[in-house]
Amino acid sequence: MADVAVPTSAGIGDGTAVSGTLTGDRQGPWQRLLLVLFIAVPSLAVPAAVWIAWGWGVHWRDMVIAAVFYVVTGYGITAGFHRLFTHGSFRARRGLRIALAIAGSMAIEGPVVRWVADHRMHHQFSDRDGDPHSPWRYGTSAWAVAKGLVWAHVGWLFEPVQAPQRRYAPDLLADRDVVRVSRAFPLWVAASLLLPAAFGGLLAMSWQGALTGFFWGGLVRIGVLHHVTWSVNSICHVFGKRQFVSRDRSTNVWWLALPSLGESWHNLHHAEPTSARHGVLRGQLDPSARLIRIWEAIGWASDVRWPDPVRIAARRLP
């Protein structure tokens, strides 16, 4: 990618002010064309799936394939791209680290280094100038927030200037395993689309099974996961409850907790970004934290940053 200058007045990591410019990465025309393709097609598959299910029903085989790939790629994003690679909430053994990088890549939300750089930049400037996807970008009027929600949900993905990877993800660029997985992103895209079709065809022993496996386990699953992930960027900064002190407008949205595998306890996450558990209050289900706990118990994860009850209590709003 070529480098371009991005004006800024904020620092790195702690949000303190500095002067100068950032060197941002610019998307090329082919990248933007592929971005449109991989956003539009799965997104259109979701309403088509409702119509197909209403008219013809869905075979259990396709639902199982879709559910398995949703869980695997979803945890790749939540436990992998987000809690491990972006925030260092725990340390993972090499095999798990590589597996999570691949699983997250198969969600088709971008290569791991790109995803991490964007998200670290979001935390530095959260809901202020410089945030890649704040829904408060245009102001606080009803119309401005409506436009901001669209921007935060999907519009920001088409911004030509992106977070500079060399500044926001130097640790990952120094990790050979992560760089190899990131550079092989087209391979993981192909696997994400073709493996559900292969399983569907083998289970049904027919081309029809391959086609429905591709549709439900590939396109529909990717479309749903995309919009759930993007909802954390948009909905979880406008609607929901603020239960903890944070320097932005992040919220907790209970009804997104299970689809997002625990990511929608977003207010706590912004209050304590490195915490391995986001749902810390009674009844706040956090499947990603539960999975990390299992990995810790069997020795696959270590140095897990579980929430400190004293710090949590200190940040709790009345």
Rank of each mutant, 00 (worst) to 15 (best):
G200F: 10
G200L: 10
G200E: 02
G200K: 14
G200A: 10
G200H: 11
G200D: 02
G201E: 02
G201H: 12
L203A: 14
L203C: 03
L203R: 06
L203G: 04
A204C: 02
A204D: 13
M205V: 12
S206A: 08
S206H: 07
S206V: 07
W207M: 08
Q208L: 09
Q208A: 10
Q208R: 15
G209T: 10
G209Q: 12
A210K: 15
A210H: 14
L211G: 11
L211S: 07
T212K: 06
T212I: 01
G213C: 12
G213Y: 11
G213T: 11
F214R: 09
F214C: 05
F214S: 04
F214T: 04
F215I: 10
F215N: 10
F215V: 09
W216Q: 03
G217T: 02
G217N: 03
G218K: 06
G218H: 06
G218V: 09
G218D: 08
G218A: 11
G218S: 09
L219I: 14
L219R: 14
L219A: 14
V220R: 13
V220K: 13
V220M: 05
V220H: 06
V220F: 02
R221G: 06
R221C: 11
R221E: 05
R221A: 15
R221D: 01
I222F: 06
I222D: 02
I222R: 07
I222M: 14
I222Q: 12
G223R: 15
G223M: 14
G223H: 13
G223T: 14
V224W: 08
V224K: 15
L225W: 06
L225E: 09
L225R: 11
L225K: 08
L225F: 09
L225Y: 04
L225S: 15
L225V: 08
H226C: 03
H226V: 00
H227E: 01
H227Q: 10
H227L: 01
H227M: 02
H227V: 03
H227P: 13
T229Q: 04
T229C: 09
T229E: 03
T229L: 03
W230Y: 10
W230R: 00
W230E: 00
V232F: 12
V232K: 03
V232E: 05
V232C: 02
N233W: 10
N233Q: 02
N233H: 07
N233I: 01
S234Q: 01
S234P: 03
S234I: 00
I235N: 00
I235V: 15
I235S: 00
